[in-house]
Design a protein around this nucleic acid. Structure first.
Lengths: 159, 159
DNA sequence: CAGTGTATGTCAAACTACTGACATGAGCGC
DNA sequence: GCGCTCATGTCAGTAGTTTGACATACACTG
């Protein structure tokens, strides 16, 4: 029950709790998305496209927190199955803006309902104020971790 | 900036923010752990063992939020490299209690310092009250998502 | 204009963690 | 005791993601 002298106290560590919450959310989302034949990244991609049509592969990757290579293979599958469309050639640069097809939109609708139910359950025991506090706290953590990577001396950017 | 009518508003979605924060934390931890030749699961396993010596493979897996299969291959590597020890045969059931070796403890020390620096930076702009609020909020979300996985018998995916 | 730096799309290989499956052992009710 | 259930450790196979590498295209600076 009580913490040791050494190490980080897991019961009061925001980092550990954050990982635990994220893991629980991930498991719940996978559970409701699986019957629909979707993964979380799959759903995230569609949701991103619904809100910001025309997003590029790299932008989608950043929004879904995966590498652009991962998003690329996903996009190819989604295009092959008719959920999204991309122009064969870039109009201006190399960027290929992606848009949802009607089929993609329909597919997203069911997924959104499922995901919303998870979020509802997650927010179940929290007041609006608590939710606002949590939002603020998460934004603060995200901002604090942005850039300035861990080791100033010799840590070239990943990749 | 403003959300559409359809879908989930990403800018105010606790789920999305949670994923973003978790992703940022993961990246920062990987960055500081990489020079030490450790992965996050690797470190988590050692930290768990330092606080609760004798944990079994399955218990470690739950604590590190991976499957027991994943933890098993990690433990085999850690044992091979002399960071942990497990009895060759179970004393009572099938459970093999794992303990840190002196080498494992030394290795953990450096990692803990690195991880602590990340957590410090993450908590940088937050007051103690805000941290307490965040802790409460995360615990609430975790509790709400526990068990009752996505689809109870009487809740087929909506539509 | 050439040169540099940054960002993109894409291919390929390597890896990580997962799902599926099996045998074993403990706990429980009958 | 016997059968049932659950948890554990472990062995595969598999899906998703990452790292590595390359060619291309824009923006900036000299």
């Amino acid at each position: 029950m009580s913490a040791n002298r050494v190490g980080i106290d897991l019961d009061t560590s925001l980092g550990y709790l954050l990982k635990e919450a994220s893991s629980a959310l991930r498991a719940s989302m996978e559970a409701v998305l699986r019957p629909l034949g979707m993964t979380i990244t799959h759903y995230s991609c569609l949701e991103l496209l619904a809100q910001r049509p025309g997003l590029s592969n790299s932008e989608l990757a950043r929004g879904a927190f995966v590498t652009r290579q991962s998003m690329n293979v996903l996009l190819q599958a989604l295009e092959r199955d008719g959920f999204v469309t991309r122009p064969a050639e870039a109009a201006v640069g190399k960027v290929l803006p992606t848009t949802l097809t009607p089929r993609g939109r329909r597919s997203l609708e069911a997924a959104t309902a499922a995901v919303r139910s998870v979020e509802i359950r997650m927010l179940g025991g929290m007041t609006d104020d608590e939710q606002a506090d949590a939002l603020r706290a998460l934004r603060s953590m995200i901002h604090a971790l942005r850039d300035d990577d861990g080791a100033p001396p010799s840590t070239p950017p990943v990749e």
